[in-house]
Nucleic acid binder design. Structure first.
Length: 421
RNA sequence: GGAGAGGUGGCUGAGUGGUCGAAAGCGGCGGUCUCGAAAACCGUUAUACCUUUCAGGUAUCUAGGGUUCGAAUCCCUACCUCUCCGCCA
């Protein structure tokens, strides 16, 4: 959500930002509705000022024992005009706000301009891409073979787009969650366990609504939604709050399931765990002073990288182009993990700075050192997504004998197991 | 699910139709004092919007309606919190 005044003063910047993001929104409509709105405010406030003045006089006249009937009659008429104008104003504001909620955040000036992923920039790469001398099985084959994954059972239970882990597969997921949360909390992140079912206001706050309504699962009454990421409850913890200066920066981490309908993605990555309706994720959220949010963005990327380096998995860091940026973000890095079995990079983490876009939507503020109340910047990053991490491990740690070596950092969380066979 | 109580500024908490944007306290900020700090004392301390600016105006006491010339104050609805009962992991 942008400040109306900002749009009024920088219409071309807002339009260009939306265009570069391939977002459709009608800035001219926002501007004309705003103009109309201000005209009515001018009228109605003049009437209200008069009413207040005369009402005060009526009080005095009554005290003095003078007749007030004429004044009361006149104000009755004014009151009617006011209520008509107020009704008009309310309707106008609803339309204006609706138009405003569809205006995306503007990309940061450093973001490469481009329509799609071909304009993304690889910032750095880490680790060696393995070149095994045997055929690496994709994770769904090795998983079934080792009896740690049962995709057929998952589809019997829930239909297509779900996975089921068992035995050391399920243990590995739990181990990964513990490994990641321990890593982040050791670096100062506070662990949080938050609700997975949230109100539409909450979904609006982080920018999932209105745009992504069709990508989310909602309850029958349509008023509650299943979270697509823990970013939603974590960031919204501070909805409508004023954070004291000393509390910043706020750094949180949570594990949660993520529910996504993946509408429109049918036929894409249909096999295995790569694209599913429910997956687990460890998510980091930070709320920081606007002055240093871009430094925090870099450190948040590093925090996610630490997870992958600890697991000794080769990856690369990509800076997303404007066309790839999500509705609410101003700048975003993706971490992509090499998966030997499917022989491609898997997007495993997304780390983004939303500047004050989300804070405005949820009316989250902080009291600055000068005592003034301002909007903080919000950021989040996966740290990281399990449903793609597990495939990468099963494929990259595969041996010629068809077993899977358990990464060293996980063994303490897996009763000391070293190998799945 | 049933019954009751309540939601006021950053916080606590007065205020039941007419200078109430709202007492008081706490907190914050500035100052006096001090080598410095604490204490004490003095002062100050909301936000948004419109006009436009050495200024004026409007709105905001959970939210949305209603009554009234005039609502924090009266009425209705929703939401939330608390207490008791029921149910239950």
């Amino acid at each position: 959500m942008h400040d109306l005044k900002f749009i009024r003063e920088n219409p071309e910047r807002v339009k260009a930002g939306a265009a570069n993001k391939n977002e459709k929104c009608d800035i001219d409509k926002v501007l004309s509705l705003d103009e109309e709105r201000r005209e009515i405010i001018r009228q109605v406030e003049r009437l209200k000022a008069e009413r207040n003045k005369v009402s005060a006089e009526i009080a005095k006249m009554k005290k003095a024992g003078r007749p007030v009937d004429d004044a009361v009659m006149a104000m009755r008429k004014v009151g009617q005009q006011i209520s008509e104008l107020d009704t008009k104003l309310r309707e106008l504001e609803v339309r204006l706000n609706t138009a405003l909620t569809w205006v995306p955040n503007i990309p940061h000036e450093s973001v490469p301009v481009g329509a799609d992923e071909t304009a993304n920039v690889v910032v750095r790469e880490w680790g060696e891409i393995p070149e095994p001398d045997f055929k690496v099985l994709p994770h769904w084959e090795i998983g079934e073979k080792l009896d740690i994954m049962d995709l057929a059972a998952a589809s019997r239970i829930s239909g297509s787009g779900f996975y089921l882990l068992k035995g050391l597969g399920a243990t590995m997921q739990r181990a990964l969650i513990n490994y990641m949360i321990d890593l982040h909390t050791a670096d100062g992140f506070t662990e949080v366990c938050a609700p997975h079912i949230v109100t539409s206001e909450t979904m609006f706050g982080t920018g999932q609504l209105p745009k992504l309504a069709d990508d989310m699962y909602k309850t029958e009454e349509g008023t509650m939604y299943l979270i697509p990421t823990a970013e939603v409850p974590l960031t919204n913890m501070f909805k409508q709050q004023i954070i004291s200066y000393g509390q910043l920066p706020i750094r949180m981490v949570a594990h949660s399931p993520c529910y996504r309908r993946e509408a429109g993605a049918a036929g894409k990555d249909t096999r295995g765990m790569i694209r599913v309706h429910q997956f687990d994720k460890v998510e980091m959220v930070t709320i920081v002073h606007p002055d240093n949010s871009y430094d925090v963005l870099e450190s948040l990327v590093w925090q996610a990288e630490k997870v992958l380096q600890g697991l000794q998995l080769p990856y690369r860091v990509c800076e997303l182009s404007t066309g790839e940026l999500s509705f609410a973000s101003a700048k975003c890095y993706d971490l992509e993990l090499w998966a030997a079995g499917v022989a491609k990079y898997l997007e495993i983490s997304s780390v983004a700075n939303f500047e004050d876009f989300q804070a405005r939507r949820m009316n989250c503020r902080f009291r600055d050192a000068d005592g003034k109340v301002k909007h903080p910047h919000t950021l989040n990053g996966s740290g990281v997504a399990l449903a793609r991490l597990i495939p990468a491990i099963l494929e990259n740690y595969q041996t010629a004998e068809g077993s899977v070596v358990i990464p060293e950092v996980l063994r303490q969380y897996m009763r000391g197991a070293e190998l799945i066979r």
